[in-house]
Design a protein around this nucleic acid. Structure first.
Length: 261
DNA sequence: CCCCATGTTGTAGG
DNA sequence: TCCTACAACATGGG
């Protein structure tokens, strides 16, 4: 589930498992996920070096090496990272790093819609993708300033990576649910008050998701995520959850709790 | 077999 | 210029 919270959990996981160990080998199972680099170049650049630190901007993860380059990982619609020992079983791993302690780090992408590339300057990469500020790094004023320019729906605006980076289909639904806003509510109809509520909920939802390590069963009872399906009961009013298309994606919401203004 | 799925990118049209 | 709709990408689940 690779939106901001998922990618942040992957980042913390890599920090806890894979830093400061010599990379002894690289296996690329599918070069479809490689963007602008060859498997040979990737191997040559990583082999013999160590992972030093990690960084994240929105849904993009950067793994920084002790030779100055960073490996950018994006997960598309499906993805995970897994640190494992010896010949343990890992499926859908498209890239695997071998460390000198006998462990491996796998980049997993079942649908191969993810991307891996080299990035020499992270800020430059963010500019080139025209990404907005990370959803957990911008403040209230910047939020209002950026969101306020949109004439579209709140949901599509929150999901627009050029306005704010990190929010996708699932978490935009969750943020709107807590803000009692209909996914098709127009940004221009929000008053100052609703705008602040939205900002607060964006932060709370994303932070809670990271705290729960994005595992649905760990979320508080008041969260929509475990019920994010048609015909489920709304956790707030026990009404029925509805699914509609917004900007090409299915938005799940409670018609009784969430209003257009 | 059909439809759907947590994302991004490019195209087309209003 | 900005917004929406849609297809494509690849793969599996219901």
């Amino acid at each position: 589930m690779p939106e901001l919270p998922d990618v942040e959990v992957y980042r913390q996981y890599i920090n806890a498992t894979s830093l400061h160990q010599k990379i002894t080998g690289i296996v690329v199972k599918s070069d479809r996920v490689l963007s602008g680099i060859s498997a040979q170049k990737l191997s040559a650049t990583l082999k013999g070096f160590e992972l030093d630190s990690t960084d994240r901007h929105g849904k993009y993860l950067f793994v920084c090496l002790d030779n100055g380059t960073s490996v950018m990982m994006h997960f598309g619609m499906t993805g995970d990272v897994k640190y494992f020992k010896g010949d343990d079983d890992v499926v859908y791993d498209q890239l695997r790093l071998d460390f000198d302690n006998g462990y491996h780090l796998a980049y997993i992408s079942r649908r191969k819609l993810g991307k891996i590339s080299f990035v020499s300057d992270i800020e430059e990469f963010i500019r080139s993708k025209k990404l907005g500020p990370d959803a957990l790094s911008l403040d209230q004023d910047e939020f209002r300033e950026r969101i306020g320019k949109s004439r579209g729906s709140v949901k599509s605006t929150l999901m627009n990576q050029k306005i704010i980076a990190g929010i996708g289909n699932v978490y935009s639904d969750e943020i709107l649910f807590h803000s009692r806003l209909h996914p098709q509510a127009k940004v221009q109809k929000l008053g100052d008050r609703k705008m602040l509520v939205l900002f607060g909920n964006m932060r709370r939802v994303l932070q809670m998701a990271i705290k729960c390590r994005t595992q649905p069963e760990k979320f508080p009872r008041s969260y929509l995520i475990p019920f994010r399906r048609k015909k489920e009961k709304c956790p707030a009013c026990t009404g029925e959850i509805k699914g509609i298309k917004v900007s090409g994606r299915t938005a799940y919401y409670c018609p009784a709790c969430q209003k257009k203004v």
